[in-house]
Amino acid sequence: MSVLVVGSVNVDITVRASAIPAPGETVLGPAAQVSPGGKGANQAVAAGLAGAPTALCGAVGADAFQEVALRGLRRAGVALSDLHRLAEATGLALITVDPHGENAITVASGANAAVGPDHLPSTLAGISHLLLQQELPEAVTLAAAQQGRAARVRVVLNAAPARVHADLLPLVHHLVVNEHELEAMAGPGEHAAQAARLLARGPEVVTVTLGARGHLTVTGSQTLTFPALAVPVVDTTGAGDTFCGVMTARLALGEPLDRALRAAGVAAALTCTRPGAQDAMPDWAEVQAHLA
């Protein structure tokens, strides 16, 4: 079966610097890298590279940045019939990466902010998994989830950034958060207990990504924990998006939850070994080699 991603499309402008600047501080870097990004586009690229037929619903501007924004999607074979070209500028993300691979990101939403529920596809025929994030307007994400539930499609939500409409979680089958988003949504506590509190609000599965400490997943009957693949970290940009896209793709292809989660963790780690987001994502053959 196939994956539909409803989400943002950006161009990333990345500077590698000696440190992430503090308020009021100027930090110098040698050069800027201009590359495709946006959480929706990133996750669609990851899903496509992981082998699942994948489509993207989102928007770019009718400007020079759109070609950069679409480069990775085309490389991954993502279907773009539901991609809209709007009057607003293509979204931009300004990213600073420090020598340890950590990053700070500021996003200018541009065309992403102009996407409305009327831009969603009229049917989800042939779609088994709907992958959502939180960089589009809240009304779009909610309407997409409602459409997915009504069509009996598995709804996967990456709650990033961690602002969730009260009506959204009951529509979600699988919630993915990092530990900061987890605490914002569930309050302080031990990760499995926090995830269990989110289960009580509607999702059937909650996955928590923990960076270098791996990831854990809680369902109504089990807790699955996975260590991170040890890799030399160059840049963590896009690792979480890789995780979400690969996990959803492998689930759509019929793999059991534990195998899909393991593959997602390996793919996310491999993304950290190269600079950039989409440009750093591994193809399925590379993931398989490390799984073996």
Rank of each mutant, 00 (worst) to 15 (best):
A145Y: 00
A145M: 03
Q146S: 12
Q146C: 01
Q146F: 00
Q146T: 05
Q147F: 13
Q147A: 13
Q147L: 14
Q147G: 09
Q147P: 01
G148I: 13
G148K: 09
G148N: 04
G148W: 07
G148D: 08
R149V: 10
R149S: 03
R149F: 04
A150S: 13
A151C: 10
A151G: 00
A151H: 03
A151T: 04
A151F: 06
R152L: 13
R152I: 00
R152K: 14
R152P: 01
V153E: 11
V153H: 02
V153R: 06
R154V: 13
V155P: 03
V155N: 04
V155W: 13
V155S: 05
V155A: 04
V156E: 12
V156Y: 11
V156S: 06
L157N: 10
L157M: 09
L157S: 11
N158W: 04
N158T: 12
N158Y: 09
N158R: 01
N158I: 02
N158D: 14
N158S: 12
A159V: 07
A160G: 06
A160R: 05
A160S: 15
P161C: 12
P161F: 10
P161A: 12
A162W: 03
A162N: 11
A162F: 08
A162Q: 08
R163V: 15
R163M: 07
V164I: 13
V164Q: 05
V164S: 07
H165K: 10
H165Y: 03
H165W: 03
H165M: 04
H165F: 01
H165N: 13
H165D: 14
A166E: 15
A166T: 14
A166L: 09
A166G: 08
A166Q: 14
D167K: 10
D167P: 02
D167I: 01
D167M: 04
D167T: 04
L168G: 02
L168I: 06
L168M: 12
L168E: 01
L168S: 03
L169R: 09
L169A: 09
L169E: 06
L169G: 07
P170F: 13
P170N: 08
L171W: 00
L171N: 05
L171K: 07
L171C: 11
V172F: 11
V172T: 02
V172S: 06
H173T: 12
H173N: 15
H173W: 11
H174R: 13
H174E: 13
H174Q: 09
H174M: 14
L175Q: 07
L175G: 07
L175N: 10
V176C: 06
V176Q: 07
V176F: 03
V176I: 15
V176A: 10
V177A: 09
V177N: 02
V177K: 03
N178Q: 11
N178C: 11
E179W: 01
E179T: 07
E179K: 06
E179R: 11
H180I: 15
H180R: 12
H180T: 15
E181F: 00
E181R: 05
E181K: 02
